[in-house]
């Protein structure tokens, strides 16, 4: 049952990611990406990472995607532009790089399986908000604080980059 659920969520994620990448219209692409975020959140639930799943929906499908849609509609791309997007310089090389990555990663994965890297028993893990909070505000407190500086820098960068002139 758990495995079947993961397979369903995984297949949905792959299909929606492929659809999102191949859409001509960025709005359709963003909506398909929301589908992928939701199916990945389902995968997190199957992996018993409940709080990560909740944050995935809140942050990715909520905040980041809304930001994307705002910008897409702010730019107001004309339909005549969308029709002739312009071909990439070397599309074969892009496909080649992607397939090459899959081949190399697949070889590494199967070698790791053969070597018995993953043969250990799956540990029981509490993925609830309380446990995650204890880890963040305990062991990873310094990294958490540095994260706030990163976000501050991002906010300043976004404001300065979109300003028309700095006076």
């Amino acid at each position: 049952m758990t495995q079947a659920l993961f397979l369903i969520f995984g297949a949905t994620a792959i299909a929606s990611a492929l659809t999102a990448v191949t859409r001509q219209n960025p709005v359709a692409s963003a909506i398909w990406l929301v589908v992928m975020f939701f199916s990945l959140a389902g995968g997190y639930v199957v992996l018993e990472a409940y709080f990560v799943a909740a944050v995935q929906i809140l942050v990715y499908a909520g905040a980041i995607m809304v930001l994307f849609l705002f910008v897409i509609m702010l730019l107001d791309l004309r339909s005549e532009y969308l029709e002739h997007e312009g071909k990439p310089k070397l599309p074969v090389l892009g496909v080649f790089a992607s397939v090459l990555f899959l081949v190399v990663a697949g070889i590494a994965l199967f070698q790791a399986i053969d070597a018995g890297t993953f043969s250990g028993t799956v540990a029981d893990l509490d993925g609830s908000a309380g446990a995650i909070g204890g880890a963040i505000f305990g062991k990873w407190l310094l990294a958490f604080e540095v994260t706030s500086i990163l976000l501050l820098g991002a906010i300043l960068g976004a404001v300065i980059l979109t300003k028309r002139r700095l006076t």
Binding site: I14, A17, P26, G43, L75, P88
Partner: peptide, 21 residues
């Protein structure tokens, strides 16, 4: 699944010209 999704993302970055996508 992570590898396949990463490859799809790589495909999108390498083959699309729309900066939003």
């Amino acid at each position: 699944l992570g590898f396949i999704l990463f490859a799809i993302g790589l495909l999108g970055v390498a083959c699309r010209r729309n900066i939003l996508i």
